[in-house]
C-alpha cells in the first residue's frame, strides 16, 4: 500500500497455516517488504481487506494481538470465491492485505476491571486478538472469564489456545457446544451460549462484557447480560457488515449515519441502541 493509493495492498507472505476446524484456517502473515512492516501498527479490534490476486478481497479482523510483533494472523471459514481461493494457498504463497481499518476496543479504559468474553463459533477470532492483548498485559485487569461455544466440538477454533487458557490459573474458561454437538469424551459444557452464561452468572460489578457471535447468539445473550446487571455502556461487540473499501466510501456497511468500517466495527450496546437495526 502506498500512502497515495490506499487501494493497493501490502504484499504478505503466508508463514504458517493452521487448520482450526472443518473449513476454518488461520494464516500467519509476514510482510514481504520490511519497510511496510516498520510502518505498520494496529490495535485490538481493527480489521483489514485480505486478497487473493485475481480472485478478490475479503474482510476479516486481525486475529492476532498487537503485542505479538512482526506478523498478523487471520482466521477465516471457506465460504465463497475469495475464501475458497485463500484456503487453497500454502505456506510461502503471497497474498494481499489492506489495513488496519476501523476503531478499537478501548482496552486502556478497561484497566482495573473484570473482563467477561462471550463468543460463539467463528466469532472467537476478533475476540482472540483482544483476549491475548489483555492477557499479555495481565496485571492491568482483574478477573478474566471466557465463555466460548460452538455448534460441535469439531467447530471450536483455536483448540490449542483453549487448552492453554484452561490451564492458566488467572483465566476462567467455560467451553460449550450446542446440544447434540458433544463427543463421548467432551469435558466441557453442553448448551447454548446464553444458557451457559446464565449458569455461570458472572458478576456485573466493575465488569466489561465483550460479546461476539452470530446475530441470533447476540440477540439472546443481551437479555441475559441485562438480567445480570450489565449496563449497555459496559457491553461491547463488533459488527460484521459486508464491506468492500474499508474506508467509508463504498457505502455498503452504512447503518444509519454510521459507517461500520470507520465508526466501528467495535460498538457498545448503548451505541447500537441508537442505530437502526440493520446489522
Amino acid at each position: 500500500m502506498t500512502a497515495a493509493n490506499l487501494y493497493i495492498p501490502y504484499q504478505m507472505r503466508i508463514d504458517k497455516v493452521t487448520e482450526e476446524a472443518p473449513g476454518v484456517k488461520t494464516f500467519r502473515l509476514g510482510f514481504v517488504n520490511k519497510d511496510d512492516e516498520g510502518r505498520f501498527s494496529f490495535k485490538a479490534g481493527q480489521f483489514g481487506e485480505y486478497s487473493v490476486y485475481g480472485e478478490g478481497e475479503s474482510t476479516f479482523c486481525i486475529a492476532s494481538p498487537p503485542t505479538r510483533k512482526g506478523y498478523i494472523e487471520c482466521t477465516f471459514r471457506q465460504m465463497g470465491r475469495v475464501t475458497t481461493a485463500l484456503a487453497d494457498r500454502d505456506e510461502g504463497d503471497i497474498v494481499g492485505f489492506r489495513g488496519p481499518y476501523g476503531n478499537i476496543f478501548p482496552i486502556d479504559e478497561w484497566a482495573g476491571k473484570n473482563l467477561l468474553f462471550i463468543a460463539g463459533g467463528i466469532a472467537l477470532p476478533p475476540m482472540r486478538c483482544v483476549i491475548w492483548n489483555c492477557l499479555d498485559l495481565r496485571d492491568r485487569y482483574q478477573d478474566v472469564t471466557i465463555i466460548y461455544g460452538a455448534r460441535t466440538v469439531a467447530d471450536l477454533v483455536y483448540k490449542h489456545e483453549l487448552a492453554e487458557w484452561e490451564n492458566r490459573s488467572d483465566v476462567k474458561l467455560f467451553t460449550t457446544v450446542d446440544p447434540g454437538g458433544q463427543t463421548p469424551d467432551w469435558k466441557g459444557k453442553v448448551g447454548f451460549v446464553p444458557t451457559i452464561l446464565e449458569q455461570v452468572a458472572p458478576s456485573s460489578v466493575n465488569t466489561i462484557a465483550i460479546v461476539c457471535g452470530p446475530p441470533i447468539m447476540i440477540k439472546l445473550t443481551m437479555p441475559v447480560l441485562a438480567k445480570l446487571g450489565f449496563k449497555p455502556e459496559a457491553i461491547y461487540t463488533t459488527l460484521e457488515n459486508r464491506m468492500k473499501c474499508g474506508v467509508g466510501k463504498c457505502g455498503r456497511c452504512n447503518v444509519g449515519k454510521v459507517y461500520v468500517c470507520k465508526d466501528g466495527p467495535v460498538f457498545t450496546l448503548a451505541q447500537l441502541n441508537q442505530l437502526p437495526p440493520e446489522y
Binding site: G54, G56, R242, C245, K249, G251
Partner: peptide, 29 residues
Amino acid sequence: SCFDIQDERDRYTGVRIRCWDSCGFGLFT
C-alpha cells in the same frame, strides 16, 4: 457513488476493478 471492488481474471492475467453498485440490490449487503 456506492461501488464494488471485484477481481476479474482469465488463466494468465487479471485486474482488480471498482465499479458502480447499488443499495437497491439484495446482494449489496
